[in-house]
Computed example of a mutant assay.
Amino acid sequence: MVDKNIDYSLYLITNRYDSSDEQFLNIVFEACNSGVTLVQLREKDVTTKRYFDLAVAVKKITDKFKVPLIIDDRVDICLAVNAAGVHIGDNELPVKRVRQLIGKDKILGVSVKDVERAKESEAQGADYFGVGAIYPTKTKVITKHTTMATLKDIVYNVAIPVNAIGGIKEDNILSFKNTGISGVCMVSEIMQAENVRTKVTNCLKNVEQLM
């Protein structure tokens, strides 16, 4: 059974870029050791076996630091490694069906861009939302801009945690002041940081000012 009382404040979404597996896992280790509160393993172009092996390796790290592991898109991988939960987007299985597959105890995150989708997903069993892209992003995930006004509107209209995503950096975290979000999702700012520990520490200080 998974404890759903989750701290969403600094949510790391992985991207391996050009790093080796060893370098990638070292970054995840440093990030967890430095205070990220949640980790999502996101892999878009790998085989199921490859995704599974990476998930097993990452989960050893997240378990060590008691950081929940969320698997992007893949319900099968989530269940296979007994991750804390799964995060899905618009092109995945319906929210209601995913909830049925993973059961009531696992965490279900959903990407949303408007209030209608948010309300519908909340009713079907979502535990939290990722809303964005708020700022321009260079990740491989194709997304469109979401305004601060829309972000606030979603927060106001749902009862579950909402996280901002997309181009979020250490120096723009404070722009989310008074939005009501539960945290920020970060990819390149942490995964490509020269010093992961310093970057996470600084980002946490800024996030704390939002809460």
Rank of each mutant, 00 (worst) to 15 (best):
K96T: 09
I190R: 07
L174Y: 04
I190C: 00
N202Y: 03
S175R: 14
G35E: 01
A159E: 10
E92Q: 12
D171S: 13
E43F: 00
V95M: 07
G125D: 06
S188Y: 01
I61C: 04
K138V: 00
A55I: 14
K199R: 13
I154T: 00
K49T: 12
R16E: 12
I88H: 11
Q100D: 13
L25S: 08
S20F: 10
I173Q: 10
S19L: 15
A80N: 08
L79W: 03
K205L: 04
V58N: 13
K119S: 02
G166H: 13
E189H: 05
I6K: 02
K96V: 07
G132W: 11
K106R: 06
G89K: 06
C78M: 06
S188K: 10
T37V: 07
L41Y: 02
I165G: 11
A118V: 14
K144P: 03
T62W: 08
S9Y: 08
T137H: 04
A55P: 09
K119C: 07
S19H: 12
D18M: 13
H145G: 01
M211G: 13
I70C: 09
N163K: 04
T201D: 07
R97V: 14
D3Q: 00
D7M: 02
V200N: 08
A83E: 11
V75R: 09
F52D: 14
A123H: 10
L108F: 08
T137E: 03
